[in-house]
Amino acid sequence: MENLIEIDNLSFSRSGRLIYDNISLRIQKGKTTAIMGPSGIGKTTMLRLMGGQLKPDSGDIKFKGESIPNMRRKRLFEVRRQMSMLFQSGALFTDMSVFDNIAFPLREHTNLTEDLINTVVQLKLQAVGLRGAAHLMPSELSGGMARRAALARAIALDPELIMYDEPFAGQDPISMGVLVKLIKALNDALKLTSVVVTHDVTEVLTIADYIYILAEKKIIGSGTPAEIKNSDSPLVQQFLQGLADGPVPFHYPAGDIRQAFLGSSL
């Protein structure tokens, strides 16, 4: 199977804190790959590294065999036209209507006439079920609608790769169901390669073809959803079952509580 993205021996640190320690992973073309892990582990950072917004300390990230960290800015911008990202907040432009938000990448990167742009935008909005909301401003949308509008914008230029940053976070069950259906349908219909960063276990197990679980600066488990479910790693099982305590401790590292309360008289 051909890989769209290959990450080799990647290490990354920010403000002196090590986020990734020598990790390698593969994103297969045409598949949905999920990157899971506890909050604060740097899952979004992984997407930013793939998109070339951050540079690794060491190691390489290849998109179609081309090294992203070593690309010149102009080439990076060319490559980014083939990828797209759905941000957690949606990141819609607040001074533009939903229609103009989706038309934005088309107006920036194509020479299509306004008639054609109108047709494409209507089609994209129809795909996410928001054709009737084209005239609304982002502030008038609910959280789920904003994310769907952002999704329509993300697929406006028909990218090869789409990166989802916590697409299900803070969604009600109906919105979550809609997003799961959309991600799956778009992946199948448009033959996209998807990378989903999330910690919503149930949803991911239904849409992912392959899963990586990140914790403690490393990949602690990877495989198909079935392999992950049957993993014998206690860390993976703690994450899947949502146990409060385990290899990832409940308590943030601290001294002995008796020492803290009773001081040196202990």
Partner: peptide, 13 residues
């Protein structure tokens, strides 16, 4: 609100 990041990811400087 990540609008600057989203511009960058849309290959718009």
């Amino acid at each position: 609100t990540e609008q600057l990041s989203s511009l960058e990811m849309m290959a718009v400087d």
